[in-house]
Nucleic acid binder design. Structure first.
Lengths: 264, 264
DNA sequence: TAGTGGTCTAGACCACTTC
DNA sequence: AAGTGGTCTAGACCACTAA
């Protein structure tokens, strides 16, 4: 049996997808639909909540319910880790990023806090150390304008970063060139990486932190960064608002029968 | 102001995360919480719906509300495309897959339909052809047991697959070795790929198709497969239940200043 | 048949925004 | 003050499951 609110929601969703309600357009007010015989206020409200959870609209008191504009996805490829960006100073990074993104460069807001914490099981596994070992955690919250887009927390082994600018809890984004530049200066040049990602529903805390619209999923990214000799120099966990990002990877089709060593 | 249902939901969520309610355990019945003064039936129900949307519990009529067990993520690395799997026949594929996954090999259920359709804009862009051109679409719905896990629809240019077993609408998974084997036999050996992925909320249709639990996001995967000379031989779109998969990619840190060609 | 969650109503009241 | 969505109630009734 199909519930009344589901029928109404489906009908409105169809009208939104067909463009009958364009992005930014306002849906009928709840009381009007009640008047029109779509059901009681609770029923219509339930339909509106469903549309909100499906990412189609946003409701707010006083404003009404409007069709959510679809923001273009920011495409993340491995070019964002280009050594030229961080090795050769800020000026180069500035140009490289502007060229790579093909649009106006705008420095993102970013808050940062550095702390010494005990490694959780997933962090410990990532850094190849025992659970409970002390590590440095550098947590950033990145915004586009005033809207948070993602968090990124890097974990380091103390012996790799002790005494560097990474540990120095000054304000601002870890100095010129960022964390990889600092590690480079300390004798650790990054060489290869592994990224693992999956999507899930955010917790209530994460919804508040990232100011997520109702129903928006998050993508959790786990990044392991190695030096040439295979040492893990950084393990990072990122949490991204799903509607803002896409990830792209290029790779050769592996052939274990030929190269006999798997991928990488 | 914090709503009453949100408070109740947060309290229960905390108890679930702390293990006070273990996976499979049953939450108090709605009427009991009403009795206990947590609010009216609607209020308690709203809290339970929130927990369901957060992926913590599943409710069903007659059964009650139980804590959802967390299924381990299936890790997808590029080793799943190993040429040895499809080039050297079924026997090798059997062994390679069992070795790679490290667990009992079990042939997944898979339904398949082949049709000739007009290319949508995204498919046209993927195959580098004009919008509206005719293409072959091979759609699979993959299940683990009786539970669907993902869909995968491959699109091909007609001139690449006309007359091959791919187009032949026989039952079963496209013959020995799958689609890549067929292309290989037709003179098109796959060489490199690009995968792009992002997460979103499913549509109502997709919820039904994949039998998704309430609130579960999906991950959409776009895969472009090339031959050695850069021809796009397949463009595929997959839709995955988010709670079942994680993706892993290994790569070298690029250095445009040194190799002067970016990544590929 | 008894017990579970799900839907729906009618209405009161609250929180936020705009005028 | 007027208008928007959001919360909450009390109760009726429905749909599904298990005994």
């Amino acid at each position: 049996m199909v519930a009344k609110w589901r029928e109404l929601a489906d009908r409105l969703a169809e009208q939104i997808r067909s463009g009958e309600y364009a992005p930014g357009a306002q849906l009928p007010q709840i009381r009007d639909l009640v008047e029109a015989g779509e059901g009681s206020k609770s029923t219509v409200h339930q339909a509106y909540k469903a549309l909100e959870a499906e990412g189609l609209v946003t409701s707010s008191r006083g404003h009404g319910t409007v069709v959510r504009p679809r923001t273009p996805l920011k495409r993340l490829g491995i070019a964002r880790y280009d050594k030229a960006k961080w090795r050769d100073g800020d000026e180069v990074a500035f140009i490289a990023d502007r060229v790579a993104s093909g649009r106006e460069y705008k420095r993102n807001e970013q808050t940062q806090t550095v702390s010494r914490v005990e490694a959780s099981d997933v962090v410990a596994e990532g850094l190849r150390i025992p659970v409970g070992s002390e590590v440095y955690a550098r947590a950033r919250l990145v915004k586009e304008g005033t809207q948070p887009t993602h968090t990124l927390t890097s974990y380091y082994r103390p012996e790799h970063v002790e005494g560097t600018r990474i540990v120095d809890p000054t304000p601002g984004p870890a100095g010129r060139g960022g964390g990889y530049r600092v590690l480079y200066d300390a004798g650790y040049e990054i060489d290869h990486m592994r990224e693992a990602l999956f999507a899930r529903v955010p917790t209530a805390d994460e919804v508040k932190l990232l100011q997520l619209p109702s129903g928006e999923p998050v993508v959790e990214l786990h990044r392991t960064t190695y030096t040439a000799d295979g040492t893990v120099i950084e393990y990072a966990i990122g949490l991204h608002a799903a509607s803002r990002f896409a990830w792209e990877y290029d790779f050769k089709v592996p052939d274990s029968a030929q190269d006999g060593k798997g991928q990488k």
